[in-house]
Design a protein around this nucleic acid. Structure first.
Lengths: 218, 218
DNA sequence: TGTACATCAGTGAACGCGCGTTCACTGATGTAC
DNA sequence: TGTACATCAGTGAACGCGCGTTCACTGATGTAC
């Protein structure tokens, strides 16, 4: 099996030595990629099993060898979308220093990460408020967990040390709200607006942390 | 024409003295209401002309006497949804006093207004990120105008007077982001969470304004 | 006021289309001996 | 190592369904005289 053969998962010509297991995994990924491609222009509720199968290079019936329904594929897509975000976050968490430096680092990282995973973020942003309940619930849950983790991180900053736990959670949810809004802006904006959006987000984060630092002494 | 006859716009039995114009207006509103009802459970891209016509009490073909397509109906629905919000805002604008009191008033008003216009807000919240471009664009435009108006209002507060105009705009967009997030939370939450959500939003708004007031003196 | 004609909101049959899902099948891969 | 059988990813025909849209129509409302 050469690299070229692996590169095109829609090539279903028999290849000596490629195991059934590997071919199946490639087709499965081709289905996920085909769905993600269609999701650039349509919401999840508007894409069809037939079109996804077609673009992945299989017949509609073969789809069922991989997923029991489009909904099941959607759930896998939510997980796939968040997994690289989770990886990014645990890297970032290892490099925490102090708020004012971290705000710059994390906003720059966020903007770059969105640009590098546009299709996943577009999917998440759309389906977060979309019509398919199970996807909406899954996405909201991931974001809640994210907010909770951020509350923990905020508690580590000396400048916020004296805030009650519940207030820290409110601040964390506010920050996540700003992050979500930033993602939405990036998805709508041309590439050359990235720096402008990053600066605005950074300003907003600084405002929030300044307000929070004042909070306890008001 | 009695009140009873006017109450049921799906009643198409001839009524002496009801003008064609009035009957047509009633049917048109019945179509908009039917669409709004279906939008409680489905995104706009997922509701059909046939179902909307059926629920409004007319045949699918008669739909075209009122709108050239579902998309056109959607645009009217966006306008209808924002009109009561705009009315609320211009009322609120007449009662501006000082930031700390206004934050409480406006968050309480927002929560109540969302509860009173649930269907419209749910439609807007979904389609703001939804798959139908013309609706998304329309909604984003309305929100931009809203942000611009808020920038003007903020400029009137003595405590923010010394902030540069562009910073005021950034603060205004941050506040609008929080408002949008609040609407989304209200749509997901049970009625008895309203007070909790209102308090959290109020806290977030106070944090932001405190941060902004500090901004100029940093 | 009465009559003849115009308007037009709503009807019902019909169309072609893409959809999800079923079914019996094919043939390469995998395994038991 | 060779043979016979099992597995199973993918095929292709077929189904019934709801969709948007067309068309010629009906009959109450509206208007001109």
């Amino acid at each position: 099996v050469t690299a070229d053969e692996l590169i095109d998962p829609t090539d279903r010509t028999p290849v000596a030595g490629m195991s059934r297991q590997l071919r199946k995994a490639l087709t499965r990924q081709a289905l996920l990629d085909a769905a993600l491609a269609q999701l650039e222009n349509h919401s999840f509720g508007a894409i069809s099993l037939r079109e996804v199968a077609k673009q992945a290079g299989i017949t509609p019936t073969a789809f069922y060898r991989h997923f029991s329904s489009m909904e099941e594929l959607g759930i896998v897509l939510v997980d796939e979308s968040f997994s690289s975000l989770r990886a990014m976050m645990s890297e970032a968490r290892a490099q925490i220093t102090e708020p004012w430096a971290d705000i710059n680092t994390s906003t720059v990282t966020l903007v770059r990460h969105v640009r590098e995973h546009l299709r996943h973020y577009r999917f998440i942003a759309r389906e977060r408020s979309g019509g398919i309940q199970v996807l909406r619930k899954g996405i909201r849950h991931e974001i809640e967990v994210f907010s909770y983790d951020l509350t923990q991180d905020l508690a580590g900053y000396p400048v916020l040390r004296d805030l009650p736990r519940e207030t820290l959670a409110v601040v964390a949810r506010l920050i996540v709200t700003v992050m979500v809004a930033t993602v939405e802006r990036l998805l709508d904006a041309p590439d050359d607006a990235d720096d402008e959006i990053q600066r605005e987000t950074e300003t907003q984060m600084r405002l929030i942390v300044m307000g929070a630092a004042q909070w306890v002494t008001r």
